[in-house]
């Protein structure tokens, strides 16, 4: 077993590179081989293989009794997963886009997330809810949101958000094995899809065999001393790109990849900020009432004197627009991240 607390870039492992989607599928396949009670259901997850390649090849390997296409009926099949989990199975239910939470949220936040608590710990709900998030490809405002702050706000579910292939595998392994419900949110822009612009790190080294990344542990994606960028998912890559650029100017940026929102690794945030004293939070979710405010509040509550400067780079509180120029204006892309880093250093 490989236990990873550091990102793959810092590990000297030979060899095999996989796209994020293939790494995710590999974890699912390994867990399905290991545990008969694991099955995957959702829209277009069987013959199609998941519209963002989250299940490619699984139907051929495990057959239609365990890789199950559902009707477009999210309340029905997510509720089914909840009930199957309470009876000891380990379902993975895919919500095709996180944006579709509106048609099935009751099963997610009032049932999946609360049954264990309501039962005083006597009924477990060991399921994974996988869902695609994020924009940047002009899919409009109902197919581009991340919404992880909304899931993380509602108690009772863990929320993991991998940014790279190795973590996609390791966090999926942990999510399936967890006895609590876990929401596994994969950004379309990190999957390494051949039909969407991809960053250079979306195909990377992935350990073979069993690979576990613990839920609730952030990773230092890049160590630095001048400013801390706390971020997650696709924005990790934007932040790393900007850090590489600024390094040429002698600006040393630390990039902290949260990897999990629930539980949130506040210790890692505090440790980094204690070192740099300057904080930029980059979040592809909406600005107000969300993750970026939570990160800043966590630091300030712990020690109000810790920070000398703070900036947030997030989606302004508008629906995500369609036109490329408008969408790029609201997404936390390189230019805005760079501006915020320069701002806290000024």
């Amino acid at each position: 077993m490989t236990l990873t607390d550091t990102p793959p870039a810092s590990r000297a492992q030979a060899g095999r590179r996989l796209s994020t989607s293939k790494a995710m599928v590999e974890a699912i396949a390994q867990e399905m081989e290991r545990d008969e009670s694991v099955f995957y259901l959702g829209e277009d997850v069987a013959a199609y293989g998941g519209i963002f390649s989250s299940t490619t090849g699984l139907l051929e390997q495990f057959g239609p009794k365990r890789i199950i296409d559902t009707p477009i009926s999210e309340t029905g099949f997510i509720g089914l997963a909840v009930g199957a989990a309470t009876e000891g199975m380990r379902p993975i239910a895919e919500l095709m886009f996180a944006d579709f939470m509106g048609v099935c949220l009751d099963q997610i936040y009032n049932h999946m997330a609360k049954i264990h608590y309501f039962s005083g710990g006597r009924v477990k709900v060991p399921m994974v809810l996988t869902t695609a998030v994020g924009g940047g490809y002009s899919d409009g405002g109902q197919h581009s949101q991340t919404l992880w702050g909304t899931f993380a706000h509602l108690p009772g579910m863990k929320v993991v958000v991998p940014s790279n292939p190795a973590d996609a595998k390791g966090l999926m392994t942990s999510a399936i094995r967890d006895d609590s419900p876990v929401v596994y949110m994969f950004h379309k822009g990190i999957m390494g899809l051949p039909w969407m612009a991809k960053n250079r790190r979306s195909i990377d080294l992935v350990p073979e065999g069993e690979h576990v990344v613990p839920i609730g542990k952030a990773a230092i994606a890049r160590a630095g001393s001048d400013v801390t960028v706390v971020t997650l998912s696709l924005s990790v890559h934007h932040a790393l790109d900007v850090a590489d650029t600024l390094a040429g100017e002698g600006i040393d940026v630390e990039v902290l990849d949260l990897r999990s929102l629930v539980p949130l690794d506040r210790e890692a945030i505090l440790a980094s900020v204690a070192k740099t004293r300057r904080l930029v939070v980059v979040d592809e979710d909406y600005l107000s009432f969300g993750l970026s405010g939570e990160v800043v509040a966590s630091v300030v509550e712990s020690d109000p004197s810790l920070l000398t400067a703070v900036r947030r780079v997030a989606l302004p509180d508008v629906p995500i627009p369609y036109a490329r120029s408008l969408e790029y204006a609201v997404l936390p892309r390189h230019d805005r991240i760079e501006g915020a880093i320069r701002g806290v250093l000024a």
Partner: peptide, 23 residues
């Protein structure tokens, strides 16, 4: 007794499907 209930109207139906599925 495999008993559960929900305070949300009609939302106890979908989990029953999963229990039946598991059985």
């Amino acid at each position: 007794t495999h008993f559960s209930c929900s305070g949300i109207i009609a939302e106890g139906y979908p989990p029953a499907l999963g229990m039946a599925f598991a059985f």
